[in-house]
């Protein structure tokens, strides 16, 4: 899996810049002046102990939370209070820590909702099922079939996702995010609760997504071997602060990171 050795990485300009982000809930500072940037085509991992503010960071980036302080710049445009669906419209897609699929709907329908923003016909057409509306639906269906093919989930196309095992649900959720053809893909613990083989599969999909679809990926993950294998750079959070950032090797050698993970008395 050590792709860094075999393939030259094609990292571009800064896609997302997060500057001095702070957010507090009541008295708890979930994020405290965190800054980092993400470059095009990069895989960036955010790691840290439980409660370090990793998910809060993703929620700020895709507009679920509005940071009380700091600026997020995406594709060169700074933004203040952005709504979630606006962030989606700009090309940010995500998956969730506790899978947020539409449980009553089939795999196909779930992934089709990911195409929602790509639908160009207006609301009136979208309420119909003939003529241009049907043509458009079929075009998008073709695209979705490619994704289903890519993720090797052909067999569960029509199954309501609520009935699928956990690992497959994670895969469908990735499919839904991919369907939007995002520029930035946020993955919140894509491998949590998976067994070894499922993890390997997921790693392969993430690397392929990065490679073939050209998507920039920000992921949160607890499995350190996975993080070290697939990411170009790593940002480490602890108690809402950034304590380190750099290549996997740099981070691994960082004393603060070792302390944060192993626990050290601060005196």
């Amino acid at each position: 899996m050590a792709q860094d050795m075999t393939k030259p990485r094609n990292i571009g300009d800064v896609l997302l810049n997060v500057e001095n982000i702070s957010i507090a809930f009541g008295g708890v500072k979930a994020l405290d002046g965190v800054s980092f940037d993400v470059r095009e085509h990069e895989i960036l991992a955010i790691i840290g102990p439980n409660g370090a503010g990793k998910s809060s960071m993703l929620n700020c980036i895709n507009g679920f939370y509005h940071p009380q302080d700091g600026i997020i710049t995406f594709k060169g445009t700074p933004r203040q209070r952005m709504q979630t669906h606006e962030a989606a419209a700009q090309g940010i897609a995500r998956t969730f820590q506790n899978i947020a699929l539409f449980k009553g709907m089939s795999t196909l329908d779930n992934i089709m909702t990911g195409r929602n923003l790509k639908m160009k016909k207006n609301l009136l057409w979208q309420a119909l099922y003939f003529g241009p509306a049907l043509t458009e639906e079929l075009e998008h269906r073709a695209k979705v079939e490619e994704i289903i093919d890519f993720l090797e989930i052909e067999a569960i196309r029509k199954t309501p996702v609520g009935k699928l095992p956990y690992g497959l649900q994670k895969r469908v959720e990735l499919g839904r995010a991919l369907a939007a053809e995002p520029d930035l893909l946020l993955l919140d613990e894509p491998m949590a609760g998976m067994n070894h083989e499922e993890k390997e599969d997921m790693c392969r999909y993430i690397l392929d997504v990065n490679d073939e679809f050209g998507a920039t990926i920000v992921l949160i993950e607890h499995d350190m071997s996975v993080v070290m294998d697939i990411s170009d750079r790593v940002v480490v959070l602890d108690y809402g602060r950034k304590i380190a950032a750099g290549t996997p090797d740099e981070v691994r050698a960082n004393q603060d990171v070792i302390d944060a993970y192993l626990g050290v008395s601060h005196d």
């Binding site: 679920f64 989606a88 897609a93 089709m112 909702t113 309420a127 839904r176 939007a180």
Partner: peptide
Amino acid sequence: KTTIGRALRAVADDHQAALSVGIP
């Protein structure tokens, strides 16, 4: 069958997820 219908069902199922795929 329709796109809007699917969006409606999506919203009914999970608000957050619906927002994250850009359904207003």
